[in-house]
């Protein structure tokens, strides 16, 4: 609960304090890209590779890759990446990845985070059931390291088009 309060407060603060934050502008670059995994056959060998997601049908999977680079000259710290699962997709269970990060998910719109198996969903009648991948609303990566100048980190997850 403490973490949640801190992060909400931080967001509000950053919006309110936009002029001050401008001091640190152009320091960290944050990019989201979406890919599809395709199987290609080259020289008689089949291999999977990622191509930009351009022909996507219901039931197919896309890969979101989020990359963050420090283009400034001092380290950035306490990095937390938060990604609401896009509408019309489901989070692919266990697909979130990020070296040097702690990964947690939310099934209640970002109020509470944890491991999916530990989370419950409250039904309309007040009863609770175990959460499934279809309930995941957010994925969060808490980066364990400080991002040094000139360095880039990436995290990723997969989603299935409903």
């Amino acid at each position: 609960m403490k973490k949640m309060n801190a992060s909400i407060k931080a967001m509000l603060f950053s919006v309110a304090m936009l002029p001050l934050a401008a001091l640190a502008e152009d320091k960290v670059v944050f990019k989201s890209e979406v890919f599809q995994e395709v199987t290609v056959t080259e020289d008689g060998k089949s291999a999977t590779k990622l191509v930009p997601a351009e022909k996507v049908l219901p039931g197919e999977e896309v890969v979101y890759i989020l990359s963050f680079s420090n283009e400034g000259d001092s380290e950035a710290r306490d990095l937390v990446i938060n990604n609401p699962i896009p509408e019309h997709t489901w989070y692919r269970q266990g697909s979130a990845f990020g070296a040097g990060t702690q990964i947690s998910v939310s099934v209640d719109g970002g109020k509470r985070y944890g491991n999916l198996i530990d989370l419950d969903v409250t039904l309309a009648n007040g009863e609770q059931r175990a959460a499934t991948f279809k309930d995941v609303s957010h994925v969060r990566w808490t980066v364990n390291y400080a991002l040094q100048p000139g360095k880039t980190g990436t995290v990723s997850y997969r989603a299935v088009v409903q």
Binding site: A10, S14, R77
Partner: peptide, 14 residues
């Protein structure tokens, strides 16, 4: 997606 970070050790969350 959003990335929250600090530019300075005691600075605000950006």
């Amino acid at each position: 997606a959003t990335l929250t970070f600090k530019a300075e050790p005691t600075g605000p969350d950006l």
